[in-house]
Design a protein around this nucleic acid. Structure first.
Lengths: 255, 255
DNA sequence: TAGGGGAACTTGTACAAACAAGCGAGCACC
DNA sequence: GGTGCTCGCTTGTTTGTACAAGTTCCCCTA
C-alpha cells in the first residue's frame, strides 16, 4: 500500500517531467491541489515536500511554489550501490575481487566497525568495459562470512547481501575529495601515477545504527561526478577541512 | 520569532552533541518528547525531522529513533559560501580578484544564465594564508554591476551581495568531480601541472528561480573535502556520468 | 527449552481547523 | 506619474484526533 502523499507526489512529478509545469512556472496552490486530489492540505504539503527534497520545486512563504528543474535526484541506493546506479542508467557494468583477507581490526577501525576481526576486500569495478572504480572496503566481522560467500565477480554486493542475509545499508556518511593515484591505483585503473582520482570514503550502517562497512572508493577522473541539488532550507552536504579530521589511512594490500 | 519546532530541534541537538544521547542510543519516544516540551506530537515530529535531515538521527516505523552521529551537517550557506564556512569553523581566510571582464554570453550560457552580457570573474581564495581555491565564475548580466562594485579583496561575495542589493542565493545545483590542474590552475594554486584538484561546478538561482551565477571552483587536493550524510529515505546526492552530460567548457582567461 | 502468539509501544499516514507571516497586485493619495 | 498602503492569496506553524503499520518483548504452550 503506497501512501497517499506519495501517489500525489508521483503525479505532480510526472506533470513536471512531462512539461505540464515548465521550469520557472508556478505550481498550483496547496488549496487547489487539495481540491484536485480530494486530500487534506497537510497531505498535499507532504507531497510537495517530497518534490522539494528532490530539488524539483522550491518554496517560500507567501508565494506560490516554483518549478526549479526537471532532473530528479534519485535515492540513496543509487549513491551507495554502483551497480544499482549503473543499471538504472543503462550502463554495462562489472566488478571483480582482486584480493580479500581477514585480519584483526586496527587503528580507528574498532571505533568505526566494532572490535574483533574485520574483512578487507579490494574490488575493481568497470563501466562500459573500462575499469573506473577501485574499492577498498573493510567489512565488520559480523558480515564477513556473508561477504566471503559471494562470487568474486559479483556485480552488486549490496543486492547480493540483501538477498542472502536480508542486510540493508540504511545510513551512510560520505567524504568526497580528490587524491593522486598511487602505484596500485594507477596499475589497476590504467592511469598514470599521480593522476587525479575522485575519492569517496564512506561508513555505512544498518537500520539499527550498527556499522557494516567502511570503504575508500576511487573513481578515475572523468568517469563519474557527484551531483547535489539543494535549497537554502536544509541540505546534507558540507565542506570538511582536509587534513585535520581524518588520520591518514595507509593503502591496504600495498608493499 | 523562531518556530517552536526549531527550538525543540535545537534543544534535542544540544542533547545529542553534548552526549546526553550517545551515538547508537535511542531517542525518547515522540509522546514522551511531546510531554516534556508541552507540544503536540506533530510539532515534535517536525523537530525530529530536522535532525533526521541533518543526519543526526535515523528513524523507522515501529522502533524508537536512533542517534546516528554527532557531527552536524550545516546549512546551504556553508556549502555555497566559502567565507561563511571558513568563518564558522574558525579558519583564517581571504580572497582576491585576479581578472574580471564583461563579454557576451556564449555556448550554453544563454540557456543557463539568460542571454545578453555576462560578467566573468577569476578569483583566488586562501585558507590559513595558503591558496586553496580558484573560482571561475560567470555572473548573469543583471548582477554584473553589483559584482563589479565589490572590492577586489572582498572576503565574502555572498554576504556583500546580500548587504548591497539584497541578493540571496537560494537554490543551487552542484557537480563534483576530480580534474588535473591546468597551467593556470597550477600557477595560481602553487601546485604542479596535472596534480589532482577537486572541482565543484555549480549553478545558483534566487528564490524566484532566476539564475544568478555559474561557477567552476577548483580546490587544491587535501585542502577540503565534501561530506554527505544520508539515509535510505531521501537524499539529494547522485552520481552523474562523467562525459555524457556536460559539454566541455574551455578555461576562461587562458591563452 | 524453543517457538509461536499476542499485547503494548512506537512511528507513519491522514484529516480538520485555526492563526501567523510573507508576497503581490491593485487602489488611493499626493 | 509615482509612492505607499491595504487586502486577498499563499505558504508556514501548531494543535488535536484517529487509525495503520511495524517492532519489541513477554508469556504461554508444545
Amino acid at each position: 500500500m503506497v501512501a497517499r502523499y506519495e501517489r500525489i507526489a508521483d503525479e505532480l512529478r510526472d506533470d513536471i517531467l512531462s512539461g505540464a509545469h515548465p521550469v520557472g512556472s508556478q505550481l498550483p496552490s496547496e488549496a487547489e491541489l487539495a481540491g484536485r486530489f480530494a486530500a487534506a492540505r497537510g497531505t498535499v504539503r507532504q507531497a510537495v515536500a517530497v518534490l522539494a527534497a528532490e530539488g524539483l520545486v522550491g518554496s517560500r512563504q507567501g508565494a506560490r511554489r516554483i518549478v526549479l528543474g526537471r532532473t530528479r535526484s534519485q535515492s540513496f541506493a543509487e549513491l551507495h550501490s554502483f551497480a544499482q546506479w549503473a543499471r538504472a542508467n543503462g550502463y554495462r557494468y562489472g566488478g571483480r575481487v582482486i584480493a580479500q583477507r581477514r585480519r584483526p581490526a586496527s587503528g580507528s577501525e574498532p571505533a568505526r566497525l566494532g572490535s574483533g576481526e574485520v574483512l578487507e576486500v579490494l574490488r575493481l569495478r568497470s563501466l562500459e568495459d573500462e575499469p573506473v572504480l577501485l574499492e577498498r572496503t573493510v567489512y565488520a566481522g559480523w558480515v564477513a562470512a556473508a561477504v566471503e560467500s559471494l562470487p568474486a565477480d559479483c556485480g552488486s554486493v549490496t543486492e547480493a547481501l540483501y538477498e542472502s542475509v536480508g542486510l540493508v545499508f540504511a545510513y551512510g556518511e560520505h567524504l568526497i575529495d580528490a587524491v593522486p593515484a598511487g602505484a596500485e591505483d594507477a596499475r589497476l585503473l590504467g592511469v598514470r601515477r599521480g593522476s587525479p582520482l575522485l575519492r569517496q570514503r564512506r561508513v555505512t550502517t544498518t537500520h539499527e545504527g550498527r556499522p557494516v562497512e567502511s570503504s575508500d572508493d576511487r573513481y578515475r577522473a572523468g568517469s563519474v561526478a557527484f551531483s547535489i541539488r539543494n535549497s537554502i532550507g536544509a541540505n546534507p552536504l558540507v565542506r570538511e577541512p582536509g587534513d585535520l579530521r581524518f588520520e591518514r589511512r595507509e593503502h591496504m594490500f600495498e608493499s
